[in-house]
C-alpha cells in the first residue's frame, strides 16, 4: 500500500512540475538574440498578445561623429531623431502561427531609417531566420540570428 501511495505521489509531482515548466510554443521566441553582424543584441518580449524585440546591447555604444550615445538619427520623423538606439524596439507586432513562424510584424533598420515587413522562422530552438521584405516575401533578405546562451555555473 505504501509503495502505491509513493508511486501515485511521484506521478502527481511529476505531472505538476511538467505542466509548470511547459512553455507555450509561441513564447519560445522570448529571449535574447544576436543578429549575424554581431553589432547588437535584441531582447524579445511579449506585450499583450504580440511579440516585440528591443536593442539591449550595442557593440559600439557611442556615435563616433558626436561622441554621444547613439540615437535614431535616420528616423524619417525628424522630431524622433533624439530617441536612443539602446532600448529601441526594432521588432514589432509579431504574432505566432502554428508553423514555428511569427508573422504580421515589422523590422526597423536604424542604419537607413527604413521599416520592412518581416517574418521570423525558428529553424531550431536557438536559431531564427529573420526575413525582411517590401511587398512580397519572395523579394527580401534573410539574416540568421542566434540565441544568446548564458554560461551555466559549474559546481
Amino acid at each position: 500500500m505504501k509503495k502505491i501511495i509513493s508511486l501515485v505521489s511521484f506521478v502527481f509531482v511529476l505531472l505538476i512540475s511538467t505542466s509548470a515548466f511547459a512553455q507555450e510554443p509561441a513564447d519560445r521566441l522570448i529571449g535574447i538574440w544576436e543578429p549575424s553582424h554581431g553589432k547588437a543584441k535584441v531582447k524579445v518580449e511579449k506585450i499583450g498578445s504580440k511579440y516585440y524585440g528591443k536593442i539591449v546591447w550595442l557593440r559600439e555604444v557611442k556615435d563616433p561623429e558626436t561622441g554621444e550615445a547613439k540615437v535614431d538619427k535616420n528616423n524619417p520623423d525628424e522630431k524622433m531623431r533624439t530617441k536612443p538606439l539602446r532600448g529601441y524596439r526594432i521588432l514589432k507586432d509579431f504574432q505566432y502561427t502554428d508553423k514555428d513562424e511569427w508573422t504580421e510584424g515589422t523590422i526597423y533598420d536604424p542604419e537607413n531609417g527604413n521599416t520592412y515587413n518581416c517574418i521570423v522562422k525558428m529553424t531550431d530552438e536557438n536559431t531564427l531566420d529573420i526575413r525582411g521584405y517590401i511587398g512580397i516575401a519572395t523579394f527580401g533578405r534573410t539574416d540568421i540570428w542566434k540565441r544568446l546562451k548564458m554560461p551555466s555555473k559549474k559546481k
Binding site: 499583450g48 504580440k50 516585440y52 524622433m80 530617441k83 536612443p84 514589432k92 507586432d93 515589422t106
Partner: peptide, 22 residues
C-alpha cells in the same frame, strides 16, 4: 531616468511611438 518613450499599442494596431524625451 535617462530618457522616455511614449507609445500606443493594441491588438488591432501596430505599436506606434507618439512622443519621446531625451
Amino acid at each position: 531616468f535617462n530618457n522616455a518613450t511614449l507609445q500606443f499599442v493594441s491588438d488591432a494596431n501596430p505599436m506606434t511611438t507618439v512622443a519621446i524625451i531625451n
